[in-house]
């Protein structure tokens, strides 16, 4: 089973960006752990990050033909990007929206998510370990 983990703008700054909110782990650490965890679960995990909306859309489109599940943390594009929403609607595999913090408990401009409307599940506020929890739960979800 192929899983794509997509991270959006500013997530390349994890570890240094507001660590009291986002934690001290770097994105590289998280991606390494996800790839290793995926291998133990029989999942092939591919991790990508971009600060550019169009690049994220390209990767979602490319995933349509070869990916079973997508975990996306679209960062601030979550609250603005109808284009990412539309690309996600085209992707027919299982889709999880993930945020390290809980946007619903933060500024009101983070309460709207275009991504939530286009995915199967939303996981927020569980910290960086949410990536692993999602990967570990994917086989159970897809088997049901």
């Amino acid at each position: 089973m192929n899983v794509l983990i997509l991270n959006g703008p500013n997530l390349n700054m994890l570890g240094t960006r507001e660590p009291e909110i986002y934690g001290y782990e770097t994105l590289h650490d998280i991606e390494q752990r996800c790839t290793a965890k995926g291998a133990t679960l029989g999942l092939t995990v591919d991790c990508k990050q971009s600060n550019h909306e169009g690049q994220l859309i390209e990767w979602i489109q490319q995933a349509i033909s070869n990916t079973d599940a997508l975990i996306i943390n679209a960062g601030a594009y979550t609250h603005t990007s109808i284009a990412i929403h539309d690309a996600l609607k085209i992707f027919s595999g299982y889709k999880i929206e993930l945020h390290i913090s809980n946007p619903h408990l933060r500024e009101s401009f983070r309460h709207v998510s275009y991504v939530s409307k286009a995915v199967d599940a939303v996981v927020v506020g569980l910290g960086a370990s949410a990536y692993l929890a999602c990967l570990e739960t994917l086989p159970e979800i897809l088997a049901s």
Partner: peptide
């Protein structure tokens, strides 16, 4: 609180693991 929404009963598993 954190939130897990839409995973069906597997959502409990995700929460327990986290």
């Amino acid at each position: 609180a954190g939130l897990v929404s839409g995973m069906g009963p597997a959502g409990y598993s995700a929460a327990i693991r986290a």
